[in-house]
Structure formats: structure tokens, C-alpha cells
Amino acid sequence: MSKDLNNIKKTGFKVPKDYFGSLEDKISNTMDSSSSLESINSTGFDLPEAYLNTVEDAVFNRLSQQDSSKVFSLFSRKNITYLSGIAAAALLIFGLFFNKNNITIENINIELVENYIINEDLDSYDIAALLSEDELQEELFVQNTIMDESLENYILENSSLEDLLIE
């Protein structure tokens, strides 16, 4: 083989098979998936078919609904002012009403209380449950000092000799 430069016509480089045949596709694919902002010209958002034709009717429907049934916010500042005014007035009326009757323990009819206890069928346990413990402390009894004289009188008046003998 001659070493003459004129005889070397090829570089010896090789390319993969079909490289040039697929080059156009390859370049356009790379461009599609390139990360440059310029390659993106739409958001990719889609919307239901014919959606835009329904907007007018949807808005008018909602407007007519709002006209026929106006919704008031229950907790607006204005409403709270009104409601608290009404509540205060109601309290005042009830207060006056009860004060007029002036119900106290003293002026309750005893018969009424008796009837209540009978009708409610209260037994001794129910009544005992209403008494708080501190009302029945020993000290209360101790404080009620009984004079010897009154004790003598009580025994003389209320007990017989037989009773004392039995005990």
C-alpha cells in the first residue's frame, strides 16, 4: 500500500448504521423535550367540551336563585347587635315578671309543698340525698347546749318510771 497522501481518501471514521436517516427525528425530539422556557407556549390546561357555552345560563341561574332566596349571614355585626338587644329586652321582661311574683321560701304555701312531696313519691332516701353532709356535722349538735334544768323538765314531763327501768 502506498503511503502517498494522494492515496488516502478516507478518514477511517465510522457512524452507526442509519445514523443520518434518523437524525431529523432525533433533533426534533430533543427540541420537544428541551427544558427551555421558549419551547413552552401553552399551559396544557384543558376544559370540558362546550363548557364555555354554559357560563351565561349558570350565572343567570345563580342570580335568580339569589334574588328569590336572599341569604343573610347570621353572624354579621349588625345581626349580633340586634340579637343581643332582643336578648337583653327578654331578660328584662322575665326579670320584672318574676320580681312581681316575688316567690320566696317563706310565702310558699305549706300545703303545696306537702302535696308536691306526696305526688312526687319521694322516699326518705331521696330527701336524705338532698341534705348536704356539712349540715349534719356533730359540732352543730354540740353547740346547742341544753340546760340541765330544761333536761330535767323534759324527762319529768315526757317519761315514766317504767321507761327508765326498762332501759
Binding site: 423535550s33 422556557l37 399551559t43 396544557g44 390546561f45 370540558p48
Partner: peptide
Amino acid sequence: DVHFDGNEIQLKLQ
């Protein structure tokens, strides 16, 4: 989302 038909790069932009 059925109402998004963007490709990966459009998703990345969002």
C-alpha cells in the same frame, strides 16, 4: 387531572 393534557415539560412549568 382529566382536564390537563400537558406534557412533562408543561407540568414542570406549572
